[in-house]
Design a protein around this nucleic acid. Structure first.
Lengths: 346, 346
DNA sequence: ATTGGCACTCAGGGCGGACGAGTGCCAGCG
DNA sequence: CGCTGGCACTCGTCCGCCCTGAGTGCCAAT
């Protein structure tokens, strides 16, 4: 059984290892931490920790490094979030500045988060599945080309081009616009999407030119709804990975792949659990199914327009969890407040 | 003076070095290439090439590697583009498939290019500075919030939110829309931008509520014009860099930085010269001012809506120039054709 | 101009010993 | 019973050494 002091030893090992990037020996622990016991005692504790697979020795006569399980115990029970420095807080406020639109806010957010942590930062877009459509607009670009614009109450705008079969005139477009508006404005994404699908499924005996156009456009609208339903990510800080090359034992290739793929990370971010404070962590091998078994991600939930989404930090398993969690939480809080103001002002 | 055979030796060195990633010795040259002379003769030629700083020896008794200058001579005088294999050609057509809008086409393009070359691919958006505005649309999201949408004849759509001082009703929005439309539809980006600036500079003695709103909105329009004037890039294949880590002597950090910065690469891509065939290359230290002295970029121009833009491939100085140039050219040609069809069909 | 020969250089690999950080274990102590 | 100092042991790392081999530059001969 691991004693209370044993856990403190684990904490010390995690902290020192993250600090120095070198296996931690019993002697250096008694030097750097005031345990009030001798190195031999620490060694006994370490033997127990090793039995529990919380730490491991890279080779027989070397210090110990935490296992993934050790990190897990550390973040769950031992980590006290490291409060941000005043200058870090200042950085958040000044960086985020005056927001214009959602894209802009999130772009700034991801930059401030990578700047604070020195790691790859990830920001999940608020889920739009609960959003509702406030406007649909058709703009005729050419006789047979319509720009289809959807706007939701969460501030997201999406546009897509529809190429209809035959040429339309202005009144045709007006008719289409009115019909679609009646169908989906004020509806939630889910409901709107269903109504569009129903419309498209409905067989028409002798479709007019306009019916065909309506079908084409509603196909495009369905695609846009599909896009709404998919969450999106914005990321920054990939360049910081190069500095941490040797932290990823294999190579940074899987990480860069994951960044480029997005979809994988999206799933990972969505599936992670978060605690009562909205914080979460997924450590090392826990991410194996996502192709990045040597990376950890810490996340913090934030509120956005009724729903909730996540921001996170991705780095080597051997990252500084307390600092990164604290940074994510601070930025998430600020972001929630910002979006809330935005909401009320709207 | 470097002889004709000397240049052939340079070509052999470049080819073999790119192939093997190891310094090339005189003996291996006579083995792999049918020069019909002895190794000693090749050595004499190599000594001359070294005098001209076209090749260099990493250490006293080792084979030679090309210098940046050597690569330059190679691409300018010695490189015959390596034709694509049929399966590569097939990949281009099948990947690009049926285009929907510009964003989509370019996203596919960049993916096919990174897939063909195994390097980082870069696609420059067509320049919109010669484009003209076909539509301006205002959508009222909230009493004091307008979504301002601009559409150009090159198919680009931009949207931005304007927050006006006071609340507006529907007729107010209609007035604004009409005034702005009269001002800029049909105008080129340059001219439209000037007219907007003129409007904003015009002093108004007693501005009405609507005048103020017009000013705010036109400010947003000016920002959108500014965005049009800035070119954009889309990139892919960053993950391939990890495989090539040791090719970049220092680290891949500067490359990742450049990818994340975009602005630098944009300038680099814009400033590069291209030859009569629309091909260009910027090699190693020639990119020093852009922070990536160990990378090369090869580009090919493509035609898009009257103007011309570039696609390119970025990789280590020691890249396979003939293949990459050929791939860029093939994709650029296909892209030009695609956009041309698109244009005529519009 | 080309070539075969030859002495020379030097990076890289393998080997062995010294070093030292760190461990496990044990007997003794409070 | 937990803690401690001591001690033998392990093993990775560093350093110097030598050897090998690829490759060079130079030169005299053709």
């Amino acid at each position: 059984m691991v004693t209370e002091r044993g856990l403190q030893v684990l904490r010390a090992i995690v902290q020192d290892y993250v600090d120095t990037h070198e296996p931690v020996g019993s002697k250096s622990i008694v030097e750097r931490h005031a345990f009030g016991v001798s190195a031999a005692t620490i060694r006994n504790d370490m033997a127990l920790l090793e039995d529990e697979e919380l730490i491991t020795a890279p080779h027989t006569s070397s210090g110990r490094i935490p296992t993934d399980k050790g990190y897990r115990v550390f973040v769950d029970h031992l980590a006290a979030l490291r409060p941000l420095t005043p200058s870090q807080r200042a950085a958040i406020t000044s960086f985020l500045g005056e927001p214009t639109d959602l894209d802009d806010v999130l772009a700034r957010t991801v930059r401030v988060l990578t700047q604070l942590t020195g790691q790859v930062a990830i920001v999940q877009y608020p889920s739009f599945s609960r959003a509702s459509v406030t406007h649909i607009e058709l703009v005729q670009l050419a006789p047979a080309r319509l720009l289809v614009i959807l706007v939701t109450d969460t501030g997201r705008v999406s546009q897509r081009i529809a190429i209809v079969g035959g040429d339309l005139d202005e009144s045709d477009v007006a008719v289409l616009r009115a019909r679609l508006a009646a169908l989906i404005t004020g509806r939630g994404v889910q409901e709107g999407s269903e109504r569009i699908d129903a419309l498209r499924a409905q067989p028409i005996a002798e479709p007019t030119r306009l019916d065909n156009a309506l079908l084409t456009v509603s196909h495009v609208v369905a695609e846009e709804f599909e896009e709404f339903r998919q969450d999106r990510l914005v990321m920054a800080g990939a360049a910081t990975l190069a500095r941490r090359e040797q932290d990823f034992r294999g190579s940074i290739h899987p990480i860069l792949e994951a960044i480029e793929e997005q979809v994988t990370l999206l799933r990972l971010m969505s599936e992670m659990a978060s605690d009562a404070h909205g914080l979460g962590a997924s450590i090392g091998r826990e991410n194996e199914a996502f192709g990045i078994p040597e990376a950890s991600i810490v996340t913090s939930d934030y509120d956005a327009g009724g729903g909730t989404a996540r921001i996170g930090v991705m780095g080597p398993t051997r990252m500084d969890y307390p600092s990164n969690l604290a940074a994510a939480r601070a930025v998430a809080r600020y972001l929630s407040r910002l979006l809330d103001e935005d909401e009320t002002r709207r």
